[in-house]
Design a binder for these strands. Structure first.
Lengths: 344, 344
DNA sequence: CTGAAAGCGCTAACAC
DNA sequence: GTGTTAGCGCTTTCAG
């Protein structure tokens, strides 16, 4: 690439017959003391020369990079996942409003092995990190427990530690879905959950199980299946559940992606949704509307969670707060994938 | 945030009884001249102190940020779009392998208005930019024509200029889809295209139109509808087309997102896909498999395009090449959303 | 084989 | 009001 020698603050100072300091003061709006005449002259020169302060030099001085990192788990094409994509969109929006830049990292073996999650801070790449999709196996996040590096878990939490988080109430989500299916009249109910090591998945399942129990309906181990958080997994799990108990009338699925997979395989195995089997998802992703049938699902406000997490991170970075522990409410979104069970 | 005074190279020099230079040389593997004893001593100290060179200081010195920016258009929750997400995943993978960091930008009015696409370079935020979803209205990209700033258009191009691009062959894509539908026996065919100002959409339509024309089938203006690149748009467009000409037997849709919307609305209006209407998409996104019916679509290798574009960008940045103009081949992926038309 | 010193571009304390 | 100057942490030339 052509090496364009950039204009620097010295050039501006020289060209406008002012000193470095004066130029710097004017540019940083600390210019109460500067005569408006000088100010005008400097600003004109800046304009004429097309001067732009180097972000790197400013960073060296301020010891701030102005960047935050978004850390996503290593799943297949992580950024193509609507769930993480939605969070990233939200985070970018907040960051943009606050004047921060956003960088992307994938928490793969190499990243964690070389302790990049700490290096990002120590080498001044970033001022803060938002961690997404953290599981109870991801012990590396505990390095953030001392609060020395600004970080927040987005839409997860880990039991028994002092990590910052902003999340939805997944226990409630499970309970709401459970009660909804019960009210429709279902009694033979199964659940497809996400990974065992994901805290939100555990809480979702607990909320769901507890809600059923309140009405005397038990969720047996054979009525639980892991959907691996993928469409394929959801599809396979639904078939496994139906095979094990063909009398099932409803399935609650831990996220919409798996629910879409489940509906797909149920229909391919000649079962009608919702007439034969009701399906309720969780998340309310954009695609939920375009399923056939449109998906009834628990709406989790992940866009808001992303925006909030990002704003809190900035407050953490700027020392305005010390801890973040926020849980946002969820609600049911009724569409057409769940109805009352057929009379046997 | 607690201000942790970071260990710097001076500390290492002092603690290991060596000079700044020596430490720097060792760390940068320019240490042929350093005695292995000194080297060991320094490396041990680095380890003990947990020293990490500041990326910002290195950047100030090298005048390189080590970052590239991904620029996406301002659509609703852009990062939650699987198409852009797939490209981002690919780019991140390549960048990671090459030791570059990735930052995210949205080309909204504010961004373009304040000429951030140039500022990113001029303020040393980035060494290069990958532009995604560029339309023929996005005149600002012409600022990159002089080649002074490393940039590549990803999976688009603009006619009549000297911008770098890596893309798929959309003209071929249109032709392949057209010939496929003709071979199945369709003659009453319509198309839902993306935005008029998107070059790839124009080429797709041309390829499709030309292929039909070769077999004496005309695509009239009334058989064309804009699907706005959204599910909703695709859904509305399909209904509009069917209303205008209920005898249609096939629709080619400019991307899978719109195709999924189209299938959804066709089914809701009591038309069977593919028995009554065949639908062919374009892109072959991951979700295409989980539609009902699974989507027959033109496979465009966008992951490869993303990876290649990123690698080329680095070659551009490092001055190894001057220009990039690459077009990747596409192919048909047959699933179940298109079959021969029913005999009238 | 090692070290002193200049400089990357900017900010801010301190003089004048 | 404005300018001088000392860093911020690193790399690299050049002397020793």
């Amino acid at each position: 690439m052509a090496k364009r020698k950039a204009v620097n603050i010295k050039d501006v100072a020289r060209e406008s017959n002012a000193s470095l300091t004066t130029v710097s003061l004017v540019l940083n709006k600390r210019d109460e003391r500067i005569s408006s005449e000088t100010r005008e002259r400097i600003l004109a020169t800046v304009d004429r020369l097309g001067y732009r302060p180097s972000r790197i030099a400013q960073g060296l001085q301020s010891q701030r990079s102005g960047f935050i990192a978004i850390l996503v788990p290593q799943i297949r094409h992580a950024f193509a996942d609507v769930y993480f994509g939605e969070l990233i969109s939200a985070i970018h929006e907040s960051a943009n409003e606050a004047g921060y830049k956003v960088m992307l990292e994938v928490a793969n073996a190499q990243f964690i092995g070389s302790r990049q999650h700490l290096e990002l801070f120590d080498r001044h790449y970033v001022d803060g990190i938002l961690c997404m999709g953290i599981t109870n196996n991801d012990d590396y996040v505990c390095d953030f427990e001392d609060g020395a590096r600004a970080s927040i878990l987005v839409n997860t939490s880990r039991p028994g530690n002092r990590l910052n988080y902003v999340r939805c109430n997944y226990r409630d989500a499970g309970a709401i879905a459970g009660r909804y299916l019960l009210e429709l009249g279902h009694r033979r109910i199964a659940m497809i959950h996400g990974a065992r090591e994901v805290q939100t998945s555990i809480e979702l399942q607990q909320g769901f199980t507890d809600a059923l129990k309140e009405s005397g309906v038990k969720l047996l181990p054979r009525q639980l299946e892991d959907g691996l958080y993928t469409e394929e997994g959801g599809a396979a799990a639904a078939l496994a559940l139906m095979k094990r108990d063909p009398s099932l009338t409803a399935i609650f699925v831990g996220n919409d992606k798996m629910a879409i997979g489940a509906i797909s395989s149920l229909k391919q195995s000649r079962r009608r949704v919702p007439q034969d089997v009701s399906v309720v998802g969780c998340d309310d992703i954009h695609q939920a509307v375009f399923c056939d049938p449109p998906l009834t699902t628990v709406h989790t406000p992940i866009f808001d969670v992303g925006k909030t997490a990002c704003c809190r991170l900035f407050e953490l970075i700027e020392g305005k707060i010390k801890r973040v522990e926020e849980t946002h409410p969820v609600r049911m979104t009724v569409r057409q994938s769940a109805v009352a069970p057929r009379q046997p």
